[in-house]
Deep mutational scan, measured.
Amino acid sequence: RTSMTEEYRVPDGMVGLIIGRGGEQINKIQQDSGCKVQISPDSGGLPERSVSLTGAPESVQKAKMMLDDIVSR
Rank of each mutant, 00 (worst) to 15 (best):
G45N: 09
I18E: 05
K28D: 03
D68Y: 03
S72K: 11
T2P: 06
K36C: 07
S72N: 14
R21W: 04
V71C: 11
E24H: 12
G45D: 09
V60F: 01
S59P: 01
Q61Y: 14
T5G: 03
Q61T: 12
G16Y: 11
K28N: 05
L67D: 03
K64A: 02
M14G: 04
I29G: 00
R1F: 05
E7P: 08
I19G: 07
E58F: 03
L53F: 03
K64V: 03
S40D: 10
Q38I: 11
D42R: 09
S50V: 13
S43Y: 06
G22Q: 12
L46E: 11
V15S: 06
L67R: 01
L46S: 13
S43D: 12
V71Q: 05
Q61D: 07
L67M: 11
C35F: 00
S43G: 12
E48S: 12
R9M: 15
S52D: 04
I19V: 12
D12L: 07
P41D: 14
Q31N: 12
P47W: 04
R1W: 08
M14S: 06
S40Q: 13
Q38T: 14
R73D: 14
G44A: 11
L53M: 05
E7G: 03
Q30A: 10
Q38C: 12
T2G: 11
G13M: 11
S33R: 00
V15I: 11
E58G: 08
L17K: 11
P11W: 01
K64P: 01
I39R: 02
Q30E: 10
Q30I: 06
S3G: 13
R21P: 13
V60R: 12
V10F: 08
G13T: 14
I39S: 02
P47N: 08
P47H: 11
S59N: 11
T5L: 04
M4Q: 15
S72P: 05
T54V: 11
V37N: 00
Q38A: 14
R49W: 06
E24S: 10
P11K: 07
K64E: 02
P41R: 11
M66F: 04
S33E: 01
S33H: 01
E7A: 08
Q38D: 09
Q31C: 10
V60E: 01
E24C: 10
L53P: 00
R9N: 15
G23N: 05
T2K: 13
Q61R: 14
I70L: 14
A63F: 00
A63W: 00
E48M: 11
D68P: 00
R1I: 15
N27F: 10
G13Y: 13
K28S: 05
E58K: 11
D32Q: 14
G23R: 09
D12I: 14
V15N: 04
D68M: 04
S40V: 14
S59C: 11
Q31F: 09
G44W: 04
V71Y: 06
G13H: 15
L53E: 00
E6R: 10
Q31M: 10
G20H: 02
T54R: 05
I18M: 07
T2H: 08
V60A: 01
E58N: 05
K62C: 05
S50M: 08
S50R: 14
S59L: 02
M4L: 13
D12H: 14
V51S: 01
S43F: 04
I39L: 10
S52N: 07
S59W: 00
C35N: 00
I19R: 10
K62E: 05
G23A: 07
L53S: 01
S72V: 10
Q25Y: 11
G22E: 10
P41I: 12
R1V: 13
M14V: 09
S33Y: 02
G20C: 00
A63T: 01
M65V: 13
G45T: 10
S59V: 04
M14W: 04
R1Y: 06
R73W: 06
S33L: 02
D32S: 11
Q61S: 11
K28R: 13
V71D: 03
P41T: 11
E58M: 08
M65S: 14
M14K: 12
I26S: 01
S3I: 15
P11S: 04
P41Y: 09
V15H: 06
N27K: 14
P41E: 11
G22V: 04
G23V: 05
V37Y: 00
K36T: 13
G34I: 00
P41S: 12
I26Q: 04
I18L: 14
T54W: 04
E7S: 10
D12G: 11
M14I: 13
K28G: 03
V60S: 01
V60W: 00
S40F: 05
E24V: 09
S40P: 13
V60D: 01
P11T: 07
D69L: 08
I39C: 07
S59I: 01
S3L: 15
I18P: 04
S3M: 15
I18Y: 03
A56Y: 10
L46Y: 07
L17E: 15
M4E: 10
V15C: 06
Q61N: 14
Q61I: 11
M65N: 14
T5V: 07
E58Q: 08
G20W: 00
E58H: 10
Y8S: 03
D12W: 03
D32P: 00
I29R: 00
P41N: 08
E7F: 15
A63S: 01
P11L: 04
